[in-house]
Nucleic acid binder design. Structure first.
Lengths: 341, 341
DNA sequence: ATGAAAGCGCTAACAA
DNA sequence: TTGTTAGCGCTTTCAT
């Protein structure tokens, strides 16, 4: 019996015809019996199922895909999988996909427009029914191109006007952070603003700046610095900032890794995060509690699964609409009031 | 022209026949002209390429796959993509795959045997030509099952006797760490030993223990504790260890995240990593330099690309063999000598 | 309820 | 060098 199963790969493949022959019915009958909503005599259906199981039959999805024009696969484009937020989001998408009988195929682009187009193209060649884009650029970029080709697309994390997206209300979150720091009494706040082309980065930064200005704290443009999304970038940017603005009392980094890098830079300057300079991050990654980092918690799992649902709606001809989820400020020891004197 | 390209999806699909018709040749001629190593009159080949480009032709890989029995896709099984080491390795595999004209499809299993089998099965249904397994269990598990079905399989990171694997010499690395700590004068060393079913974890731990015993430092079995691979697990395990063994002077965690968690636990106990208790991790993840963490650097990119090569060798009927790469000890401030007195 | 037949897009053996 | 033909595994009318 085990040998039979092995034959699926090793020997001749077990196809729908193999099952049909053994069952003494026509291949089309097997096909019908094996679908989600089987048609046919209940007894026959059961017999065919048992036989398929026994023979170790696995459907060759390429055949079905070719015939139906649907691959039951979706593509996911992320800038890096080593960015744990993108990884979490993809995992959530993947879980939801498997549950819905779909396969999620991921591709990394490093935010490079050329690779974005190329990988999207490859995915399309693979026959994916739609695309989830987690690395959209504010200039439209390949997303506009995809949409103009009629490809079902849903954005996640980073939004873009005119396209269906599943995001957190980053601007509101930024306001929460800005308000928090202002309320603590900070008047000299810097923002590590992330990537200029990412709505997630720019909205968070803009929200914080707006909230600060509302309360009369006006961080000059020289205190809002773009930077990469990882520890090293945050470290470097913060080091430079401290050299130029030794009077800083707080910093908001638009993601936790940058914040962690900033904390390291602070210590190198002899400053204790939370006591000498308040630090706030974004995402509440698993290391944030341990680092006592004040941050913004976002429902990445939800974002992923909702994005998949929305995409399937689009793929299956239903309508889909943008969704903005609520962020939550999580206050920890890294954000204290400014030192007096 | 853009409208033409859009027709690929929106309107009628652009197939090889569309191109053939417009070129005034037969479909098979187009097929031949478009392959990697084109056959046909150079002029005709160029013309067909130009036409294909103009029409926005994208091959429907399902068709080719059905015909040739090769999908030019490989599956990759990891336990979690949020584990940055697994993510790095997958990215390397993915890069190498794209370069070779393949698509890498990843699935996460959480080290759960049931999900391992299920996801492997799904991938196989998708027609992958082979599988790279980054989450192998020492009991054989689904890897044996796959191999017995004749599926080409290459293991990466975690090895398993009797299967082709691409790993780091974890035992040697463990020995380097053990030797390093012994040389510093540590006599009371604990090991956060990771997962019992992972060769990577067990080999690293065993290597360290062996090196320590060689030098007369005999960590008892109560000082070698299994634990999960993330920050939280390391944190918890270290906390418990410190409660039971307040006289510890050094700890080796078989990965950096556990080590980071351990450092946090130390600080909570009023101990300064590197000064009061030496800490060594494993992998040299991007945050390790900032944390001043002594660790072992492993060529994850190389492992990924080599694993893919090996798999393609297997898939294409050539032979493949296990490869063990060299680790490198990176000494930083987190591992100092024991405090005297 | 089941069988027959056709065809999705592609490639490979063979013929010209 | 190019065209012809056949068929990979599957689903889906249409007929029975």
């Amino acid at each position: 019996m085990l040998a039979d199963m092995a034959s699926n790969r090793a020997g001749r493949a077990v196809t729908i015809h193999t099952v049909a022959e053994r069952a003494g019915v026509h291949a089309s009958t097997v096909s019908r019996a094996l679908r989600r909503d089987p048609a046919g005599a209940p007894a026959a259906v059961r017999r065919i199922h048992a036989l398929a199981e026994e023979l170790g039959y696995r459907p060759t999805l390429a055949g079905a895909s070719l015939r139906t024009g649907q691959s039951h696969a979706v593509g996911v484009l992320v800038h890096r999988l080593t960015d744990v937020v993108q990884a979490m989001t993809f995992e959530a998408i993947d879980r939801a996909a498997v549950e819905a009988g779909y396969q999620a195929m991921v591709a990394t682009t490093e935010d490079d427009p050329e690779r974005q187009r190329r990988r999207a193209d490859l995915l399309l060649s693979r026959g994916v029914d739609g695309l989830i884009v987690a690395d959209a650029h504010l200039d439209g970029g390949y997303v506009d191109w995809l949409a103009s080709r009629g490809v079902p697309v849903v954005l996640v994390i980073r939004g873009l006007p005119g396209h269906v997206s599943v995001t957190v209300d980053d601007r509101l979150a930024g306001r929460l952070v800005g308000g928090h720091l202002a309320d603590l009494g900070h008047r000299n706040v810097a923002v590590l603003a992330g990537l200029a082309w990412s709505s997630a980065s720019t909205e968070r930064a803009a929200g914080a700046v707006a909230a600060l200005r509302d309360r009369g704290v006006g961080p000059g443009d020289d205190l809002v610095v773009p930077c990469g999304l990882d520890v090293t970038s945050g470290h470097t940017a913060m080091g430079r900032l401290l050299d130029e603005h030794p009077d800083l009392t707080a910093v908001f980094a638009v993601n936790d890794f940058m914040a962690l890098g900033a904390m390291i830079a602070l210590r190198e300057h002899g400053l204790e995060p939370g006591r000498d300079v308040a630090v706030v991050g974004y995402n509440d990654v698993d290391i944030a509690p341990a680092a006592e980092l004040t941050t913004v918690r976002c429902p990445h799992d939800q974002m992923g699964s909702i994005a998949l649902r929305q995409l399937l709606d689009l793929v299956q001809g239903r309508s889909a609409h943008s969704i903005r989820l609520s962020p939550e400020l999580v206050v920890r020891a890294s954000s204290g009031p400014p030192r007096t004197g």
